[in-house]
Amino acid sequence: MKNKPLEIGVTGGIGSGKSLVCKIFSLLGVPVYNSDNRAKWITNNSKKVRRKITNRFGTEAYTAEGLNRDYMAGKVFNDPAQLKILNAIVHPAVGQDYDLWVTSNCQQPYLIKEAALIFEAGSYKRLYKVINVSAPEDLRIRRVLRRDPFRNEKEIKSIIEKQMAEVDRQQRSDYNVFNDEKKMLIPQILDLHEEILSLI
């Protein structure tokens, strides 16, 4: 009898369709931890995190609605040193939150952790397997433009350039799901679900 669920990562570049893939897993009854959503929640709701960010980046870092995303993007987007400082505040808090979530779902066969930066942040080291969601770059850009009307193509390309190259993500992952609107997505997820259950 195993003591804890298998932890499976789902990653992929911006616009690849990670969230759609994770939604299908959740419909199969698999709990999904969305790292980006939880990071946003923690950044806005953890008094400790808010205090550290304000101390480091100034009172303009927050508005009455929460994190001042435009202000913070201006501070860290093109400044790796500042981004490293921000990540050093947020990532440990998200890690603790994830640990609590895993413990609260300990009776499940396996769990999904959705995160864009599984390899870059080193979180792949604790995961049993990693699934990469793949799509052609031009399709990803079109999806993000539809989803985020506040972004432009130049900005999206800049984000893609800062993320791990698609070929590297594919090679480092245990499984690759192709969300290219040519290969059917749901059968790929169903096959993976059965494959992961067979590992338990």
Rank of each mutant, 00 (worst) to 15 (best):
M1C: 01
M1V: 08
K2F: 10
K4R: 12
K4T: 13
K4G: 07
E7H: 15
T11H: 13
T11W: 05
G13M: 07
G17T: 04
K18E: 02
S19E: 13
V21R: 04
C22Y: 02
F25Q: 04
L27W: 06
L27I: 07
G29H: 05
G29A: 12
S35V: 04
N37L: 15
A39N: 00
K40A: 11
K40T: 07
N44G: 04
K48E: 09
F57I: 08
Y62P: 06
Y62Q: 11
Y62V: 13
T63W: 10
A64E: 14
E65R: 11
G66D: 12
N68G: 08
Y71Q: 07
M72L: 12
A73G: 14
F77L: 04
A81F: 12
Q82A: 15
Q82C: 08
K84C: 13
N87F: 01
I89K: 02
Q96M: 10
Q96P: 00
D97Y: 07
Y98Q: 05
Y98M: 13
L100F: 04
S104P: 01
C106A: 08
Q107E: 15
Q108A: 08
Y110H: 05
K113Y: 11
F119R: 01
A121K: 04
A121Y: 03
Y124A: 12
K129A: 11
V133W: 03
P136L: 14
E137N: 14
L139E: 06
R142T: 10
R142Y: 06
R143V: 02
R146M: 14
P149I: 11
F150S: 11
F150E: 09
E153C: 06
K154F: 12
K154I: 09
E155W: 07
E155K: 14
K157I: 03
K157A: 01
I159S: 00
I159M: 07
E161T: 05
K162T: 06
M164R: 02
V167D: 07
D168G: 02
Q170K: 14
Q171T: 00
Y175V: 10
N176T: 13
F178I: 10
N179V: 09
K182C: 05
M184A: 09
M184E: 14
L185P: 01
I186Y: 14
P187H: 09
I189T: 08
L192R: 00
L192S: 01
L197H: 11
L197W: 10
S198R: 09
